[in-house]
């Protein structure tokens, strides 16, 4: 019964936090999905890999949160350093993906109007998994709330169950991202997505470095 209550609470928290979650993951997910292949099936595969890795990130965090007792006990400085490291890694993966998308396109795009990324399927899924894991470790506000609540549960299993349910609640909000599969992939869409990816990577990189150096983003 208690497990059911915990599950229900986490699911509700996940559902309520969905907009914040898609807001946090959107900058990573939208351009990377747009550089992938068009079509519902391809996007489902990518999104599944992304979400599976995100779940892994959540469960890892559940272990850490439970072990630490309370997430609140995590001092601001290490938290800032962790965020900084995650941001820098996220930026590096995004930049690599941006350049990889260019290489993937080089052959098929040369003559054709349509971009056909038919090779390196596994490389795309690996990048999706890496990005999913890193965004899973992103300390967005609902995630911190879930971490604190999970840390208050009685056992590690309960903490993991809490995060799994939270994950399910938030994942429902990701379904609309599949509609990006309907957008025709041509040279313009691919170039825009790659450029956007690089810009977002630069933002994460600069913020990550600032955090690692101990600078607050808006310390007026």
């Amino acid at each position: 019964m208690a497990a059911l209550v915990v599950f229900g609470e986490a699911l509700a928290l996940g559902l309520a936090s969905g907009p914040a979650c898609i807001a946090a993951c959107g900058p990573v997910l939208v351009p990377t999905l747009l550089t992938g292949r068009a079509g519902f099936r391809a996007n489902t595969g990518y999104l599944s890999a992304f979400l599976a890795a995100r779940l892994l990130g959540y469960l890892l965090f559940a272990v850490v949160a439970w072990e630490l007792g309370l997430l609140a006990s995590l001092l601001p400085t290490p938290r800032l350093l962790m965020m900084g490291a995650v941001y820098v890694l996220l930026a590096v993966v995004l930049l690599c993906y941006s350049f990889a998308a260019h290489r993937m396109c080089a052959q098929p795009c040369a003559e054709s109007k349509l971009v056909q990324i038919t090779d390196n399927k596994t490389r795309g899924l690996a990048a999706a998994a890496a990005l999913g894991l890193l965004t899973g470790l992103n300390l967005c506000p609902p995630f911190v709330v879930a971490g604190i609540r999970a840390a208050q549960t009685g056992s590690l299993a309960a903490a993991m169950l809490f995060f799994a349910a939270f994950f399910i609640g938030t994942s429902i909000w990701f379904i609309p991202f599949l509609s990006l599969g309907c957008i025709v992939r041509n040279q313009a869409v691919l170039t825009v997505a790659r450029m956007a990816m690089a810009l977002i990577a630069l933002y994460y990189l600069s913020m990550g470095i600032a955090m690692l150096l101990g600078k607050k983003a808006y310390g007026y």
């Binding site: 807001a23 956007a196 810009l199």
Partner: peptide, 25 residues
């Protein structure tokens, strides 16, 4: 001519970041 796509990329990146950061990025 590829630079013509950059405003769209800035638009996409800024719309997404504004949503993520809750500020006009």
């Amino acid at each position: 001519s590829r630079w013509r796509y950059l405003p769209w990329a800035v638009l996409l990146a800024m719309v997404l970041l504004s949503l993520a950061l809750f500020e006009p990025a």
